[in-house]
Design a protein around this nucleic acid. Structure first.
Lengths: 198, 198
DNA sequence: GTAATATGTGAATTGTGAATCACAATTCTT
DNA sequence: AAGAATTGTGATTCACAATTCACATATTAC
């Protein structure tokens, strides 16, 4: 029996989410139109009613990821006004998010993502840059408040902040979840804090 | 005309190196038997005289990467006996190596690598773990010498050390080489040092 | 020098997955 | 309610890449 007809806007959301889920389970390599279709409950060719190509689906997934990452920053900002506390909170939330969504590192790292569309890489770069920009803003505020050392370059510190989480995510990934990244981030935090506080 | 016959051992080296080069240029996705064969100067089917499968080639590439990474550590150890200096040196050499061999992050990150053989992921994990182990050893020595803080857990610090380089490598990669990772590592080092020295 | 072995070659096979298309069923417009 | 637009379906096409195989040629062993 045919699947019930559903408006393109909703289907697009379903398809994007299914694609993200599929990447979570099988990596970017495992992302296939057939796989997405199965999860959504429609037939592969039906995907093309809502997206022009597989590349377009991947682009939508990227948008979704960007949304989630920035939502994280916004949330940390609403919890406390202390820059250091914001960073600490963000590091934990970011780690937690990656634990639940391995798709994010998969997509960000995978060269598969870049090979399709030439501009894709630039999109990913833009997502990371935007995220880093938010972190820089937090650090800069801390500097002006005198909480963070003056000789810290916000851009450098922001990348280092990422370094608090990124390698942990990689380890967590290759170790099949055995490496506890949440704990690592918690343990590493004091050292990171020590390196930037005034 | 047929390519000159060459002993399997040499061919295996050529093939492995060609595979690494190909990944450098086109990512793991771009790694094809045909592509490798072309670079080596033989016909695709000839690859199978020297490797049982494409998976076997990838395994060989992993071995090569492991070799290069550990050679780096050994070199840093031979330059100086001061643990802090060793780490500093290693960070710079590691960054330089990744700049020349983007294949390494490609392979380590790419899920493509894991999908083939189930044990592949464990192999990658083992490479990273071994590398981290070497770093831990250096840190541990520094602790015993009193140069590095006692409250630093070597395992945590080793992962943080990786965090000095890894996010920079990602940025360098997505920015098409515009982000200067060598400079970043150099700039970030003082902060990292500050976080671990006694 | 001859047989055995190793290496190289091109054609053919196989599998996979994205994309297209004609047609069917549903929903929307008026 | 009729016609237009939207969405779903199954068959099919297309490109591409890994692998196999029968055969050719060079190297090695004896």
């Amino acid at each position: 029996m045919p699947a019930p007809k559903t408006q393109t806007l909703q289907r697009q959301e379903q398809i994007t989410q299914a694609a993200l889920d599929l990447i979570n389970d099988s990596g970017v390599t495992g992302l296939s139109i057939a796989g997405i279709a199965q999860r959504v409950g429609i037939v592969p060719s039906a995907i093309y009613r809502h997206f022009n190509s597989k590349d377009a689906v991947i682009d939508a997934v990227l948008d979704l990821i960007k949304l989630r990452m920035l939502a994280n920053v916004a949330h940390a900002g609403s919890e406390t006004s202390d820059p250091i506390e914001q960073l600490k909170l963000l590091s934990q939330r970011h780690a937690a998010m990656l634990t639940e969504n391995r798709a994010i590192p998969y997509v960000v790292f995978s060269d598969t993502v870049y090979t399709g569309d030439p501009g894709r890489k630039a999109r990913v770069a833009q997502i990371i840059t935007t995220y880093l920009g938010e972190i820089e803003t937090i650090i800069d505020r801390g500097r002006k408040d005198g909480i963070i050392r003056k000789d810290i370059v916000p851009a450098t510190a922001a990348v280092m902040f990422l370094g608090l989480i990124l390698p942990a995510a990689v380890l967590w990934n290759v170790s099949e979840g055995k490496f506890d990244m949440i704990t690592h981030v918690k343990n590493a935090w004091p050292a990171f804090e020590r390196s930037i506080v005034a």
